[in-house]
């Protein structure tokens, strides 16, 4: 499902999907937006894209591509630690 991507020397990054990024935002507006995005059970998970390593390939993963499946999304402090 995830699409393979071309990887150059730059480190690829992802981010939230569907959120307009404005350069003119004040810090306060940014804080308000983050509060608005806090996770609640029973509510939609915010969509995002993220580059990933999967079975020998570099791919781009979008959460919404997994609609119809159960997803266990795990964050951890860093590679080479336990999970």
């Amino acid at each position: 499902m995830p699409k393979e991507m071309k990887v150059g020397c730059a480190r690829p990054t992802g981010g939230p999907v569907g959120e307009a990024v404005s350069e003119e935002k004040t810090q306060q507006q940014t804080v308000q937006e983050e509060v608005k995005h806090m996770i609640q059970v029973g509510k939609k998970a915010p969509d995002f894209v993220a580059p990933a390593y999967h079975k020998g390939s570099f791919v781009n993963v979008q959460l919404s591509e997994y609609l119809g499946k159960w997803v266990l999304l795990c964050f951890y402090p860093g590679d080479f630690t336990f999970v």
Partner: peptide
């Protein structure tokens, strides 16, 4: 950036904490 919207990013340490989310087939947490 994704960790921040899920509320598990530790700004001081600059790393993500051990957050684990169960998301159902409708995209609901």
């Amino acid at each position: 950036r994704v960790g921040k919207i899920f509320g598990i990013y530790d700004e001081d340490a600059g790393v993500e904490t051990r957050g684990r989310f169960i998301i159902d087939p409708d995209g609901i947490v």
